[in-house]
Computed example of a mutant assay.
Amino acid sequence: MRAPYLMFVLIASLGVSACSVGQERDISMRQLDKPGEGPDEFGILPSRPLEAPADYSALPTPTPGQANLSDRDPIAEGIAALGGNPASRAATGVPASDAALVQHASRNGVAPDIRSTLAAEDKDFRTRKSRFTKIRLFKTDRYAEAYKRQTLEPYGEWYKYRRTGVQTPAAPPRGE
């Protein structure tokens, strides 16, 4: 008595979900909703205090949509905090110190459209992996599950290289 009822419910739910085949499917696998009612620490935007410039004639012309002098640049601040040169972010092209690395990496040729090719392949991959992601009982993050086969297991690789005699830096113990 109960089995036919459950079978009917299963077939009906699959039939209803099949009705959305023609629509654009949501292929995002990240579940980034706020987990609770607590504060959103990313909503706070502290900025630097206002300061008078030394020479008002040296100020740039205001341009709508562009950054101004009081805007923070968290990436440059992070580079400076770690002892780097924040001005190196503004440089374009390959630095002279990395020219040999770029030359060696491109020795077998460079595909000029690699970014668009990878974006299209990744979109196809996410489309395949997101087939049944709308059928959920709980909100879950499916990203790690989908890309699990492409994830490198660092300790396995570390031990493999150590067994072959390659000198490897020390690694912290596993956090298990």
Rank of each mutant, 00 (worst) to 15 (best):
T133Y: 00
T92C: 01
D73T: 12
Q103L: 02
Y56G: 02
R162Q: 11
R115F: 11
Y159T: 12
I11W: 01
L101H: 02
D26R: 09
S13V: 15
R48E: 10
E77C: 01
K123S: 12
D73V: 07
A18V: 11
L50T: 10
G165C: 09
A119T: 12
I79Q: 02
Y155M: 12
V9P: 02
P39T: 05
T151C: 02
A170D: 14
R107V: 07
S47G: 08
S106P: 00
G93P: 08
V166M: 15
E145D: 15
P64M: 02
D122H: 02
A58W: 00
K34T: 11
V16K: 08
P169I: 03
Y155Q: 14
L82I: 05
T168E: 13
I114D: 01
R25C: 04
I75C: 07
S13A: 14
A52R: 12
G175V: 01
F8P: 00
P4K: 04
F125S: 07
T92W: 01
T63Q: 14
R131Q: 09
E157V: 08
W158I: 04
V94G: 05
G109W: 09
Q150K: 10
N108Y: 12
A100M: 01
P53Y: 09
P86T: 10
Q23W: 06
A81N: 06
L50M: 08
H104W: 07
H104C: 02
I79S: 03
Y155C: 14
Y5T: 04
F132V: 11
F138Q: 11
L14S: 13
V102Q: 04
E157G: 03
P53F: 03
K34G: 03
P35W: 01
A52N: 05
P46Q: 09
K160P: 08
S57M: 10
R128H: 09
F132Q: 09
L118W: 05
L45T: 07
Y143I: 05
A54M: 08
S28H: 12
A18R: 15
L152M: 08
R126Y: 02
A12R: 01
M7I: 06
